[in-house]
């Protein structure tokens, strides 16, 4: 099967299917959910049955319903975060690449400091200060993640800025935003797209991990990471309830990674290891 004029391998098709399904569920949410978000339909940790396909959670809510509502929250937050992170990261990265000199030095050094220790540790410390709310979660992760986007877009930008067509634009006296918007950005779009997939995965897992640690999405909302945490108690009795939301996280991430891997492999040239001997 071909997509965008490229032959897609089976793995990529599987990935696309997973993404499509998740997006559908997230958008359609309440319409496809069998019960209400907080409706109690049985006892705690009932096993799966004809009416509750994945059983119930720790206080008897339908697991499938919670998963569907959770999709909307979990995917939505990660998506908004990634968009914000890209907006900040690309803008700063390309400005640093095009302007160079002290602007570049200042921004790059700041980013170096942020990246010199793990983002999770920063996140823990910042969330400690800001307190737990959706806004502070999104802002914190977006800020932290934008440093990675900055690194990539700056690197791409610096390579493009060195090309003669950008030099021609400079010699014509074009302004900063023309050079960024018309000359550099369109040529950096392809690698940034792949990076978007990877960063989305990263943020998605990051937020899930924070929620699991009890520091992510705050309480009334259903989100997959938090659902794992809530249902962990069942594990020691052999009850797999906590694994369903965890598996949902894993499956979506696998799906995105499969598609991104395919994107990246389109441009990759075979290495010398493949020569005909």
């Amino acid at each position: 099967m071909t997509i965008f004029g490229q032959k897609a391998p089976a793995t990529a098709l599987v990935g696309l299917l997973i993404i499509l399904l998740n997006v559908l569920v997230a958008v359609a949410g309440p319409m496809v959910a069998p019960y209400g978000e907080t409706q109690v339909v049985g006892g705690g940790w009932d096993p799966s049955s004809a009416t509750t396909w994945f059983g119930t959670d720790q206080i008897g809510r339908d697991m499938l319903t919670r998963l569907i509502y959770g999709a909307r929250m979990t995917i939505g937050i990660a998506f908004v975060t990634t968009i914000l992170s890209f907006f900040i990261g690309i803008t700063l990265g390309l400005v640093a690449a095009v302007l160079g000199k002290w602007v570049d030095v200042v921004i790059s050094r700041l980013v170096d400091v942020v990246l010199s220790i793990p983002l999770l540790i920063w996140a823990l410390m910042i969330l400690n200060v800001l307190g737990q709310s959706l806004t502070s979660l999104v802002l914190t992760i977006a800020f932290l993640d934008s440093t990675r986007v900055f690194r990539l877009s700056r690197a791409l930008g610096i390579n493009l800025v060195a090309l003669d067509f950008v030099e021609v634009a400079r010699m014509r006296g074009e302004g900063l935003w023309w050079i960024i918007g018309r000359e550099v950005l369109p040529n950096a779009a392809a690698p940034l797209m792949s990076e978007f997939g990877l960063r989305f995965c990263f943020n998605f897992l990051f937020i899930a991990a924070l929620s699991f640690l009890g520091l992510g999405v705050p309480l009334p909302y259903a989100d997959w990471g938090g659902m794992v945490k809530d249902n962990v108690g069942g594990i020691s009795f052999g009850l797999p309830a906590a694994l369903y939301p965890a598996a949902a996280i894993a499956i979506l991430t696998v799906g995105i990674n499969l598609v991104v891997d395919w994107f990246l492999s389109i441009d990759a040239r075979p290495s010398g290891a493949q020569a005909e001997m």
Partner: peptide, 11 residues
């Protein structure tokens, strides 16, 4: 420039 390949914006 010397190399027309990189002197023109491909987009």
């Amino acid at each position: 420039h010397q190399m027309p390949d990189v002197a023109l914006n491909p987009r």
